[in-house]
Amino acid sequence: MKLLKLTERLGLVNYRNQSKSEIKPHIIVDTDICNSGCPHKCTTWVCPANCYTMDEENKVHFQVEDCIECGTCMYACDQGAVDWNYPDPEIGRGVNWNFG
């Protein structure tokens, strides 16, 4: 079987209103902490939806659009940079698993 890349895998996730970009993010990351004192920057590899990325200058960026609400970053970040919550259902954002 062909192994899928992460982007292809995320393409199989049933997101609701993923493109509504004006929506307030449900997870807030204080990237100042990431980029000043974080010794490992582990969220850039443990997040199963690759919401945390590192640029060429090793700067951490966060986007919430692909988040699958798994919770991993809430535990993985031991630097206090992640303010974690569930998306607000009223706006209808987030994952809707087809199988689960």
Binding site: M1, L3, L4, L12, V13, C70, G71, T72, W97, N98
Partner: peptide, 26 residues
């Protein structure tokens, strides 16, 4: 997860299958 899927025993099992969902949860 991809590493696991490359194991010869697993590869034999999933051959010809179609991935229909990818998910994760703590």
């Amino acid at each position: 997860l991809n590493h696991f899927k490359t194991h010869p025993t697993i590869a034999d099992i999933i051959k010809d299958g179609e991935i229909v969902e990818y998910s994760a949860h703590v």
